Computed example of a mutant assay.
Amino acid sequence: MQTHKERYLWLFSRKLSGEILEEERQELETLVRTNPQLRKEGEALQAFWGQRGGHSDDDDTRSAFEKLKARMHATDPQMWPEQDAGAGGVKWWMLMVRMAAALIFFVAAWHIMVATGLVPGKEDGLRSEYNIRGTRSHIKLADGTSVWLNSDSELKYPLRFKGNKREVYLKGEAFFDVAKDASKPFLVYTEAMTINVLGTSFNIKAYPNDSTSETTLITGEVEVALKNKSEKKIRLRPAEKLVITNGMDSVKSLVPKAEPVIIKPTYSLKEDSAIIETAWVDNKLIFQDESFDHLASRMERWYNVSIRFENTAIQQLRFTGIFTKEPLSQALEALQLTEQFNFRIADDTVIIY
């Protein structure tokens, strides 16, 4: 049974050779959309293919490869179909040799770079992990800290922590379960604040385009420094949430002077143990008395779509509920049960009217 990755490599190789059919091209595009991590492999193989355009191999290598190809065809004829002889066959053989060489090259290069710390995606000694909308991931850092990275979010972190601090950089949302090490404080930098912690679990929501950033402490203790007021330190205790307005180091409409405010996390009325701010870690999108406008922003990241309102009044509708594995259309239909609105879906865009 072929995997998505194996099927992708097969289709991509046919694209490089110029022999891909239109229906195969469409299948290739679908695989990339549903498995975005495959795109990087395709880009790497594309670059290697271009660099080795004039390479030729000897008859012994070709004979060995023909035997390998025969075994591949016998194992899974559908995945590895036989190719016609002649010029096209030679072209195909050359392609597969190059792809095999490329795979060996990149596997070897990867191990060398991991050993030396020169990992792809690094910037100033940092690795970078980005989740597109609709995807979430779990990252284990070198010190044993676990990070759950939400959709449309990026985490930059070193392969190994050096010196007397553990530093990472976040854009978007992540839940941290930090390994205790009193001698090395753990610091998370966002555009609006810096969170300093010795060992605890907490959630940070810091999307650059959102109006506010939040830090929700679950266990332990953290100290938050605001970007434009570094001298001001705010300590949080368990079950407290700090909310600030992005770009202003303040909270809009929460207090008269728009200062940072500490409030309690929101517990779901339908699930007593569920904290709304961290429910996404358990693949739950929980909302309680939330405006449609704000909920739409969360649904865009959750479902990897763009939501547009044609009637601004609808943006003020308020909803309470939980989404887990519901497809987008079913989720919108569920919202229609409590408030009146219409929608239509065109590709990856939702129009609300």
Rank of each mutant, 00 (worst) to 15 (best):
P238Y: 08
Y207T: 00
I276T: 12
F287V: 08
V243F: 10
S273W: 10
G220W: 03
G199Y: 09
P208W: 00
I307R: 05
A274E: 08
F292E: 04
I244W: 04
E310H: 14
S297A: 10
D289N: 15
I275M: 14
I218D: 13
M299T: 02
S273H: 14
E310W: 02
V305I: 15
V305M: 03
R298A: 02
A239V: 12
V222K: 10
I276Y: 12
A279I: 01
A258T: 05
P265E: 06
E277F: 06
A258K: 13
T215I: 09
P238M: 11
K229V: 07
I218K: 11
F202P: 08
K227A: 14
S201G: 07
V261I: 14
I204E: 00
T212G: 00
N246T: 12
S253P: 01
L236K: 06
E221H: 09
E259A: 13
K232F: 11
S201R: 14
T266C: 05
V261C: 04
R235A: 15
P208K: 04
K264L: 12
T278H: 01
G247F: 05
E290Y: 09
I307W: 10
K205Y: 04
H294I: 00
S213W: 08
D272A: 14
T266P: 01
V224N: 13
I286D: 06
E271D: 13
N209G: 07
E259S: 12
I262T: 09
I276M: 15
Y267S: 07
E300W: 03
E214G: 02
E231L: 01
K284T: 02
N196W: 04
L198Y: 13
G199W: 09
S273R: 13
A296R: 00
D272H: 13
F202S: 05
E277C: 03
M248Y: 13
A279S: 15
P256R: 12
K241G: 01
I234W: 03
P265Q: 10
G220Q: 09
I276N: 07
Y267I: 05
E290K: 15
I234F: 03
W302N: 00
S306Q: 14
D293V: 01
V261Y: 09
V197K: 07
L254N: 06
P238F: 05
A239F: 13
A279L: 07
P265V: 06
E259Y: 12
E221Y: 04
I262Q: 08
L198M: 10
A279Q: 04
Y303R: 00
S273L: 13
L198R: 14
L236Y: 04
R308F: 06
L242H: 07
T215H: 04
Y303P: 02
Y267P: 06
G247L: 01
Y267E: 03
D249C: 03
S253Y: 13
V261Q: 12
D293N: 11
E310Q: 14
I307T: 03
P256G: 05
N209P: 01
S250K: 14
K227F: 05
L254S: 04
Y303K: 01
N246M: 02
V224G: 12
A225C: 04
D293I: 01
L285Q: 06
I263G: 00
L236I: 10
